[in-house]
């Protein structure tokens, strides 16, 4: 029983948290790719930007003496999402739209997004310094411990309050996104444009509006993803680069342009990472008794050492690109 609890704590809960973060980031990336046909490299930095916006707002809120039952980071989230969405629109208007109007190739836009990445990275470090910050300076992180002694376990399942809220928020967002894309006219227009941009325009769909909505959604989701990551771990400018590749991996694995694929891909990669670095010996300990004399499980049976955790996403990405570049849901490729 203890082994199962260990597994739940280390893999199930961690994996779901990470999966939610990756999924929300990947949805933004995949939407931008589907509608605008370029790889938005600066997405990781958009997440960091959103997290910093939330951080500033939360700090301002506590400085004004407002106390809430929920962690400050979550309370300011709606406002932070709006601000980040506006910033995302600004990014497009300032850096990408002018190039698109001149008929720039996707590669040029990718390079432009690298420029944006560098600028945001530089700016956030300039303003905030490169140190690590936490949302929980002034308040504590509540941890819920579910006692499992009734099932024979000697340790509890532990889950932090932010994690619980994260699950709820992610679930809400996924449902809202689903309804938007399948029920609303604008959502369907987005899918139409991702499917066939030329025909969308011929059908009378206001493509400029769809582009704006795409950036708004991508920005808002990036803010949530970045803030959740900061709430779960810590906030630092380095956040961005480490997250770009798993997110792109998730988007590609799920099929570029397919929002649901991005969500599935996000959880896939997250669980792959968590399970690859998980010390399976801890769970397989009971089997030790079944093994013949002289043989025992090694002390640490992890597929991949912890330092290589990020490599897991990359390996999955490379394999996907080689074996099935269109991803699970058959998105765009060549």
């Amino acid at each position: 029983m203890d082994e199962l609890i260990f597994f739940i704590n280390r893999v199930l809960i961690s994996g779901t948290v990470l999966g939610s973060i990756y999924a929300l980031g990947a949805v933004g990336v995949t939407l931008i790719f589907g509608i605008l046909r370029f790889a938005h490299f600066a997405h990781g930095d958009m997440m960091t930007m959103g997290a910093f916006v939330a951080f500033v707002l939360a700090a301002a809120m506590t400085a004004m003496g407002i106390v809430t039952p929920l962690p400050a980071g979550f309370v300011v989230l709606p406002l932070a999402m709006i601000i980040t969405a506006v910033l995302a629109l600004g990014l497009d208007k300032g850096f990408y739209a002018p190039l698109r109007q001149r008929g720039a190739k996707p590669v040029t836009l990718l390079i432009a997004s690298i420029g944006v990445t560098l600028m945001i990275q530089g700016l956030t470090r300039l303003i905030f310094g490169s140190g690590t910050r936490t949302f929980f300076d002034t308040e504590s992180k509540d941890i819920f411990r579910i006692d499992m002694s009734w099932a024979g376990g000697s340790r509890p399942i532990s889950i932090t309050e932010p994690q619980v809220i994260m699950f709820i928020v992610t679930a809400l967002i996924v449902v809202a996104l689903h309804l938007f894309l399948t029920r609303s006219r604008l959502g369907k227009a987005m899918r139409a444009m991702a499917d066939n941009a030329a025909l969308a325009q011929v059908s009378g769909i206001n493509t400029a509006l769809v582009v704006r909505v795409t950036w708004v959604i991508a920005g808002a989701l990036a803010c949530v993803a970045g803030t959740m990551l900061a709430l779960d771990v810590a906030l630092m400018p380095d956040l961005a680069f480490n997250i770009v590749l798993p997110i792109f991996a998730a988007a590609i694995v799920g099929g570029l342009g397919h929002a649901y694929g991005a969500i599935v891909g996000g959880f896939l990669i997250a669980f792959a990472e968590t399970m690859a670095v998980f010390n399976w010996t801890a769970v397989l300990r009971p089997i030790n008794g079944l093994l013949p004399e002289g043989m025992a499980l090694p002390a640490n049976l992890a597929l991949v050492p912890t330092e290589y955790k990020l490599t897991v996403a990359f390996v999955i990405l490379v394999i996907t690109l080689l074996v099935r570049p269109t991803g699970i849901f058959k998105g765009a490729s060549t």
């Binding site: 850096f95 190039l99 040029t108 390079i111 432009a112 690298i114 420029g115 944006v116 990445t117 560098l118 600028m119 945001i120 990275q121 530089g122 700016l123 470090r125 300039l126 490169s130």
Partner: peptide, 15 residues
């Protein structure tokens, strides 16, 4: 960190 920012600005202007 200014170096990073300047690099981003340079590439944006160049493009």
């Amino acid at each position: 960190q200014m170096r990073v920012f300047v690099l981003g600005v340079v590439i944006t202007i160049a493009l």
